[in-house]
Nucleic acid binder design. Sequence first.
RNA 1: GCGCUUGUAGCUCAACUGGAUAGAGCGCCUGACUUCGGAUCAGGAGGUUCUGGGUUCGACUCCUAGCAGGCGCACCA
Length: 577
Amino acid sequence: MNIFNLYLEKIKSILIDLGKKKKIIIPETFDAINAEIPPPKFDCDISTNVAMVLSKINKTSPLELAERLVPEIKKNDGFIDIIKIEKPGFINIKFKALFWSNFTKDIIENSKNFGKNLKEKKYNYLVEFVSANPTGPLHVGHCRGAILGDVISNILIFNNHKVTKEYYVNDYGNQIINFTKSVYYRIREVKFNEDFPKDNPDLYPGDYLIEFAKNIVSSNSNFKFENYDDISEKLTILSIEQALLLIKKNLKSLGINHNNFVSEKSIVLNNEVENVVKFLEKNKFVYKGKIKAPAVENDNNWVEREQLLFKSTEFGDDKDRALQKSDGSWTYFASDVAYHKNKVDRKFDYLINILGADHAGYIKRISSSVEAISGKKDKLICKISQLVKLIKDNKPFKMSKRKGDYITVDDLIEEVGKDATRFIMLNRSSDVELDFDFDAVKEKSKDNPLYYVQYCYARISSVFRHINKDLNSEIEFDRYDFEYSRDEIKILKKISEWPKCIDSSSSKLEPHRIPVYLYELASEFHSYWNLGKQNPEKRFINKNNIISPDKLVFLKVVSNVIKSGMDIIGVDSPEKM
RNA sequence: GCGCUUGUAGCUCAACUGGAUAGAGCGCCUGACUUCGGAUCAGGAGGUUCUGGGUUCGACUCCUAGCAGGCGCACCA
């Protein structure tokens, strides 16, 4: 139950009614009207701006209009205790204690659905994320986007949308040739004791390739490795297979599972690039032309050439983009357009791409292509995950490009664990650079928000253990007429914000709101818990080791929201720590 | 030079699609422990929301002109 939406709907229907009776003038749209969380100092539960929004069209002051609306809102509503008008024209509502008892009843009876937005229309989403080149293990740079994509998917799934999580495998092009050659040199190193050509800048120097080489050699004993050209095709496949194996292992350790891995090579070999170019030609989005040199300094090497271009400027890009290289082969962009055509043809309502900050400049052209293909402007939604700055011993930790000198997902998981990695990476808005402090993340105290939230859940679990009840089993009551105390209502109010939190996380694709919310909820709970130290009445369990029904329901509700939030962000809620 | 993006307390960041006196944590200062698990809590100090204009009942949020940081600006992927 989203109590804010409930009262917003109620207010809207009052407005429609009053409009019919010609008592007030109503606007064309109610979009500007809201029902919000009031600032704490007002001591009320819901606040609406309706009087301020409608005052102009009604040629009256917000205060005067509020005076007229208040009796209408209060009429026939047994739950409202106080309804008050505040300064510029807000209408503030405070509920009776019974309202909150009823509120908890609703949650207990629909515990699986609490927080979900079930009224919203359901869509079919494709979320593409990670899509790191299949040339080596995932490192920290990939991590944030990976988690972001995973949790955005989880939020959409939580709201009963259909989601397909997809990884686009760039298994085609020059880098793959270089990668395969690198593996080949490692094989020669393993098999013929030859030195790896370390000074060749085109090759991948990482030590992990030795492992790849060994694996390939041992599982292909009948293979002749003497001549690269003889085996290059097969070796390419084997090398990519090795890389993907490693990447999937890394993803698994982060708690991420993709539904599909789509191969660029298969799209190219399937003539999908030719087909999409034909499609675009037919619709006059393609022409032969020249692109101007970028206005960047020291660019003497620029040669203007005629090539096949896509008219991305028609969709707001600053220059048209090349589809074909001068040697006639397709650009990466061309095959990506084909891939996006492939996505569009699979009839998703929305496509979501999670990109790293260094690919922000790519958004305009790819969304232009999707618009050209689908005719829809908002079909493709791109989310950027900003850089992660690693900090160790209070100093920035630089990953060097020299061989092997970067932190892999394996290192990260081993050092700080999956849960802390996920929680910390999600705790900030994805379009802000993130400081990832190794020492703080490992810290097991309130300095680490992960443990702070988990501890809250563990405390609730410990109460259930004391009274020999199972936290996960259902509870049932005949009557919900609990008189919750001020302190408890304060937390229940926070609970009432949960559906709102899910709503905004989902509509803005901003997962960071969830850990931020969970932290706030945990904070209020810890506060309340500590009251029991001074005042035994505020303890959950009394001297006779008995818990009252209202407190049992209360704990169940809080733990339910925490568990549900932690599940969405993919972090464990242990019952003991 | 152009595009995108960020700018909020000493530091790291929130702020519910424009709401009320801008909130947390860290750090600093005071306090609560024979603990329903202290991995916790209570209190204090700390602000011209980068700057200048504009839009309106109302701006951290929108528009505009700047300033500062980051990223990008290929026929690479």
